[in-house]
Computed example of a mutant assay.
Amino acid sequence: MLGKPGQMPDLHNLLAFAAVAVGMVLTPGPNMAYTLSRSICQGRTAGFISLGGVALGFVVYMLCAAFGITALLLAVPYAYDAVRIAGALYLLWLAVQAVRPGGRSPFHVKDLPPSSPTKLFVMGLLTNLLNPKIAIMYLSLLPQFIDPANGSVLSQALVLGTTQIAISLMVNTLFIVSASSIARFFTYRPSFAAVQRWVMGTVFAALAVRMATESQR
Rank of each mutant, 00 (worst) to 15 (best):
M1S: 15
L2R: 11
K4W: 14
K4F: 15
Q7E: 13
Q7A: 14
Q7P: 06
M8W: 13
D10H: 13
L11R: 13
H12N: 13
N13C: 00
N13D: 12
N13E: 08
L15D: 09
A16D: 02
F17V: 00
F17D: 00
A19N: 00
V20I: 15
A21E: 04
A21Q: 04
V25T: 15
T27W: 02
P28V: 00
P28T: 05
P30A: 10
N31Y: 00
Y34L: 14
S39Q: 02
S39A: 14
I40W: 00
R44Y: 05
G47Q: 05
F48I: 08
F48D: 01
I49E: 07
S50P: 05
V54E: 02
A55V: 12
V59M: 10
V59D: 08
M62S: 09
M62E: 07
A65I: 08
A65S: 13
A66F: 09
A66L: 05
F67S: 12
F67G: 03
I69M: 07
L72Q: 03
A75N: 06
A75I: 04
P77Q: 00
Y78V: 13
A79R: 01
A79W: 04
D81N: 14
D81V: 14
A82K: 03
R84S: 07
I85K: 06
I85C: 09
A86K: 03
A88F: 03
L89M: 11
L92V: 14
L92E: 08
L92R: 09
W93S: 09
V96T: 12
V96S: 10
A98W: 02
G103D: 07
G103F: 02
S105E: 03
P106H: 02
P106L: 09
F107H: 07
F107Q: 04
F107Y: 11
F107P: 06
V109A: 10
K110I: 11
K110V: 11
L112I: 11
P114K: 07
S115M: 08
P117F: 07
T118F: 10
M123W: 04
M123Y: 04
N131D: 02
I136D: 03
L142T: 03
P148H: 06
N150H: 13
G151S: 08
S152K: 04
S155I: 04
Q156N: 03
A157T: 06
G161R: 01
T163Y: 01
Q164H: 15
Q164N: 14
I165F: 10
A166L: 12
A166S: 12
S168R: 02
V171D: 01
V171S: 03
V171E: 06
F175A: 01
S178H: 14
S178G: 11
S178N: 14
S180V: 13
S181D: 13
I182R: 08
I182D: 07
I182P: 05
R184C: 11
R184F: 11
T187S: 14
T187Y: 11
R189I: 14
P190L: 10
P190F: 11
F192W: 15
F192I: 15
F192D: 01
V195E: 08
W198N: 06
W198M: 09
V199L: 13
T202H: 02
V203N: 06
V203D: 02
V203S: 02
A205N: 03
L207Y: 12
R210A: 12
E214N: 14
Q216K: 12
